[in-house]
Amino acid sequence: MTDRPRVIVTPRSAPGHPSLTRLAQAGYDVVFPAPGRVPSEDEQRSHLAGAVGYLAGVETISRDTLTSAPSLRVISRNGVGADAIDLAAAEELGIEVLRAPAANAQGVAELAVGLMLAAARHIPLAVTAIANGQWTREMGTELAGRTLGIIGCGNIGRRVARVAAAIGMQIIGYDAYPDPQYRQDGFRYASLDEVLETANVITLHAPPADRPLIDDVVLTRTKTDLILVNTARAALVDDNAVLAALNSGRLAGYAADVFDPEPPGETALTRHPRFIGTPHIGGFTRESVDRAMDAAVDQLIDRLDSGRG
């Protein structure tokens, strides 16, 4: 046991990261409830009981979990999203929630572009064929000259736009709060309806809403050659509607890096030949992890130290 104030650390990529040495040097006891994996709610509660800080990953942090942590003052996320945290409960309990905006933007943007290309050229099918000693090919589509629709034009969406412009795509973007100062060759803002109805490729970079953004009704309005990419939030897409659209041919391809639950297990969607799935690797690059961990640790120390002694 130690008298040092405790900070629990749960991101799967955190164990062994050098930025954590700063927490120890600042006088905090660093504890890993579930090294290398997402902790259960019971594991969170058992380690949070005496903790003052929480460096959090993608796990759900419920009201019940927060109320079981009377000493907790600060939650610092190693990413921008905080929708897995009960923010209302945190505010009521006086727990500050910090984020690391843009830390993983480049990694997610590059993956989104990679998934577009993989879907357009049927790369997973080709790779699997060669690995199995086969010579199976499917006619692909060039993205140059096609229209990319970006839903959510923040740090990630804008990086995707830059790469798409270099490829030669025309880009239209919808954002709930468009930035009138933003300029990018080949890009213009558009209504959500225009994006959904005219884009050949749609990539999602928006926060979740009360209901899925992409559902069966929306998919009757999109182009029949649409490639849909989701590296944002699983809740943005109705998986059953997407599966039906893939089966009917209304949707040319769907690529996702996010699932609910994670891992998703084997489902009709994950087995579909026009589906490409990756295991939440958008921000899982050495550079993104370093930026996110550095920001999360620095913010956590700053806030915790401001209330000490």
Score class of each variant (00 low, 15 high):
Gln170Cys: 06
Gly186Val: 04
Gly282Phe: 01
Pro70Cys: 14
Glu138Thr: 03
Phe275Glu: 11
Met169Trp: 02
Phe284Ile: 01
Ser191Ile: 02
Arg162Ile: 14
Gly282Tyr: 00
Leu148Tyr: 02
Val74Ser: 07
Ala56Ile: 04
Pro264Trp: 12
Val9Met: 10
Val195Leu: 12
Asn240Pro: 01
Val80Gly: 05
Ala232Asp: 01
Ala102Lys: 06
Thr285Cys: 13
Ile95Val: 15
Leu115Trp: 05
Arg4Asp: 11
Pro39His: 11
Arg291Ile: 03
Arg77Ser: 09
Pro180Met: 07
Ala103Asn: 03
Ala244Glu: 04
Tyr177Phe: 13
Gly36His: 07
Ala176Trp: 02
Arg45Thr: 07
Tyr254Ser: 05
Asp42Trp: 10
Pro35Ile: 12
His47Val: 10
Ala26Arg: 02
Pro18Leu: 08
Ala89Met: 08
Leu115Gln: 13
Asp290Ser: 06
Leu251Pro: 08
Asp64Tyr: 09
Thr270Leu: 10
Ile281Ala: 10
Ala14His: 04
Gly277Cys: 02
Val80Tyr: 01
Gly36Phe: 05
Gly133Lys: 14
Thr198Phe: 00
Ile85Arg: 04
Asp83Gln: 06
Gln184Gly: 07
Leu87Ile: 13
Ala84Gly: 09
Ile95Thr: 09
Ala235Pro: 01
Leu93Met: 11
Gln106Leu: 11
Gly114Cys: 10
Gly152Arg: 00
Ala295Thr: 14
Ala82Phe: 11
Ala51Lys: 02
Ala255Cys: 08
Leu148Trp: 06
Asp193His: 08
Leu148Pro: 00
Val163Glu: 08
Val163Asp: 06
Asp216Trp: 05
Ala165Tyr: 12
Arg183Phe: 12
Glu41Val: 04
Phe284Met: 05
Ile130Trp: 09
Phe284Asp: 07
Pro178Asp: 10
Arg99Glu: 09
Leu192Trp: 04
Val52Phe: 02
Arg73Val: 07
Gly309Met: 02
Arg250Gly: 11
Ala109Leu: 03
Ile61Met: 14
Asp64Ser: 14
